[in-house]
Design a protein around this nucleic acid. Structure first.
Length: 267
DNA sequence: CGTGGGACCTGAACGC
DNA sequence: TGCGTTCAGGTCCCAC
């Protein structure tokens, strides 16, 4: 599922329910989800700790648990929600942890790509993540989109350059900026780089307002769907007419990812 | 340094 | 109905 807007929506939905909660015992029906931890060691470290604050960094969900950070990555099909039962509310729950209030924080993940970790420092995240897109000014992007011979589409997906943009919002941002995904970063003029920065910020903030995109698996913590998918211009619209000019949207593969664009509106 | 392929996994959609 | 194929929002690792 999840790119920055989806993860942000999950964090905002969970914050009021989790902050100041005390963790009880955790279960991991699929223990690999907490690798390299063993369940008993994991519990020895987490049980009894208070969740002070939950926040997002890139596509990672970070919980400050007063001595440890609980870090969750949803990857493709992960869901995080509060359940009344330790086994959760669906058949793909890989992990759950009791809360002192009586409920359970459940992590469900059909494809088993997601991971939950417990660490004493978030330095490892800073080592692999670039800046937060929404904390930049459009002009800052002129410096970020530089020094590469890669295509701009592949570049946008590089979390080390910019944290949180995924396949959907890369395509949508490039459409709004009128830039072909196949362009080399080095070919972009300064005005195009700044424009793309503006559009990245616009697309991400609007998607947060719409509470993320439900294509298939993503759900808000309350179980309902996001609305962003109703506002896509190109993602998933291969072969359908461009909403601006009517030309069929093209679908190609770049960096092994489906890539959608309008050959007439984007240059 | 960059790219391409594969791995990690399961479920849904689609063709026959 | 059932079977096989293809595709999927992400990231990591290795070969070249």
């Amino acid at each position: 599922m999840p790119e920055l807007p989806e993860v942000e929506t999950v964090v905002r939905g969970l914050a009021p329910l989790l902050e100041n909660q005390v963790f009880g015992l955790a279960q991991a029906p699929w223990v690999k989800v907490i690798e390299p931890w063993e369940l008993d060691e994991f519990n020895a470290s987490l049980k009894g700790r208070t969740l002070l604050r939950i926040f997002r960094r890139g596509k990672y969900i970070c919980c400050d648990c007063d001595g440890f950070y609980l870090v969750v990555h949803l990857r493709m099909t992960g869901r995080l929600y509060i359940s009344a039962k330790p086994e959760g509310d669906d058949k793909w729950v890989r992990f759950s942890v009791a809360l002192a209030s009586g409920g359970f924080l459940a992590f469900s993940d059909a494809r088993k790509f997601g991971r939950i970790n417990l660490v004493t420092s978030l330095d490892f995240l800073e080592e692999k993540l670039g800046p937060e897109p929404l904390e930049l000014k459009p002009e800052d992007y002129a410096d970020i989109f530089q020094g590469s011979e890669r295509t701009i589409k592949v570049f946008l997906l590089d979390q080390k350059k910019l944290a949180g943009v995924g396949n959907i919002y890369a395509d949508e941002s490039l459409f709004r900026a009128g830039i072909l995904p196949t362009r080399k970063v080095s070919s972009l003029k300064r005005t195009e780089r700044v424009c793309l920065g503006e559009k990245v910020m616009e697309v991400l903030s609007q998607s947060i307002v719409h509470e993320g995109a439900t294509i298939s698996w993503y759900r808000k913590p309350d179980g309902t769907q996001g609305e962003s998918q109703k506002h896509f211009s190109v993602y998933g619209r291969g072969g359908q007419p461009c909403l601006i000019c009517g030309t069929d949207i093209t679908r190609i593969v770049l960096g092994q990812r489906g890539t959608h664009y309008c050959g007439k509106c984007q240059h």
